[in-house]
């Protein structure tokens, strides 16, 4: 499929005016481009929040409950939200986890939000510490990751790449502020080229071929290597909760007297509780086994199931880990064995 992208230029002031107009119309504009924490800049939580109400219930009699479903509506929602300034990796992550929520039984909570939102990403100027998106995201998907991709043209204006028509519908007449200029494609190509060819941050001396890595992790299922590599891990969920593609959740009922809510909460394979059976047996007894699961799911299971790698190389799990567990360091340590696969 050829990508039919169109290119525009818009001044920063008219973009601000457009945002103000949309806010007046009652739409939500979320600006992530400012200085936020690493965690808050991931837009995962805007589609798949840490906690979300699934339904409300009221116990009316012994064993009888009145249920009020919420959000089960499967009509396509009109766009009412615009996220500006996401990272390319985070926008791409939405595409990666899309099939989990969208194929088979559709998760309306995620899909409704995705359908009602336009994601505008900004091209990164350089790689941050522990960034390795260029190793994982295919070059062809890079500029195609978000609905809109912005990059600075000069001090006062943005160059914009639009990958679909959704924003035309969203801004309506306001879209006239976007001035079409297809020569801007070169600017994007140049910036991307620069990013992909830029020196890797110091942390990364080696990144394995994804096929070889997949085989390696599968083959070493019963090996000690995961235990040794993750000795530092303290078993918190920072890596999974900050990960833009981690999508495991848990369903809980929380009640007060006779009224309650069923909620969908983030869950993490780093917890021992994640696999604890009712019998008391835990198939993943040690932290090393939980780490193995994380790597397996990202690089093997997800590849088999959805033909995608469930990692986008944002590097948050490395930057935010309180104990200094480093996935890239593990790969480097296993380099010889991986390359032999």
């Amino acid at each position: 499929m050829t990508i039919t992208a169109s290119f525009y230029k818009i001044t920063k002031s008219s973009l601000a005016t457009l945002f103000a107009e949309q806010k007046q119309k009652g739409n939500t504009i979320i600006d992530l481009s400012g200085n936020g924490s690493d965690l808050s800049k991931s837009c995962k939580a805007l589609f798949f929040p840490a906690t979300e109400k699934v339904l409300e219930y009221k116990i009316v009699d012994k064993g009888v409950a009145e249920v009020k479903p919420d959000n089960f509506n499967d009509e396509t929602k009109a766009v009412n939200r615009f996220i500006f300034g996401a990272n390319i990796c985070d926008a791409y992550a939405l595409k990666v986890v899309g099939p989990v929520f969208g194929e088979g039984p559709v998760d309306r909570f995620f899909i409704n939000k995705r359908e009602a939102t336009i994601v505008a990403a900004i091209l990164c100027d350089n790689k941050k510490n522990a960034c390795f998106c260029d190793q994982i995201i295919p070059r062809s998907d890079y500029s195609n990751a978000a609905d809109l991709v912005f990059t600075e043209f000069d001090e006062n204006s943005w160059a914009v790449r639009s990958n679909n028509n959704r924003s035309i519908d969203f801004f309506g007449n306001g879209f006239l502020h976007f001035i079409e200029d297809n020569t801007l494609k070169e600017l994007f190509d140049k910036k991307e080229e620069k990013l992909f060819n830029s020196e890797n941050p110091e942390e990364i001396n080696y990144f394995p071929k994804l096929e070889a890595l997949k085989k390696f992790i599968e083959k070493n299922f019963n090996s000690e290597i995961f235990n040794d590599a993750s000795m530092n891990c303290i078993g918190c969920a920072t890596c999974t909760y900050s990960c833009p593609t981690c999508h495991c959740f848990d369903i809980v009922d929380e009640k007060k007297y006779y009224n309650g809510e069923r909620r969908k909460n983030w869950d993490s394979c780093a917890f021992s509780l994640f696999t604890l059976h009712a019998s008391g047996h835990n198939p993943r007894e040690y932290q090393g086994q939980r780490w193995r699961q994380r790597l397996l799911h990202k690089f093997s299971i997800y590849k088999d199931r959805f033909d995608k790698i469930a990692c986008v190389g944002c590097g948050r799990c490395i930057r935010l880990c309180p104990a200094g567990v480093n996935m890239l360091e593990m790969f480097e340590k296993w380099k010889i064995s991986i390359d032999h696969m």
Partner: peptide, 25 residues
């Protein structure tokens, strides 16, 4: 802002319960 990752509990040497009260359901 708390996301309930329990990094505070896990990093604390004095939170040594085998089965944390927060995990009981």
């Amino acid at each position: 802002n708390c996301i309930r990752c329990y990094a505070c509990r896990q990093s604390c040497p004095h939170c040594y319960c085998q089965y944390c009260k927060a995990d009981k359901n």
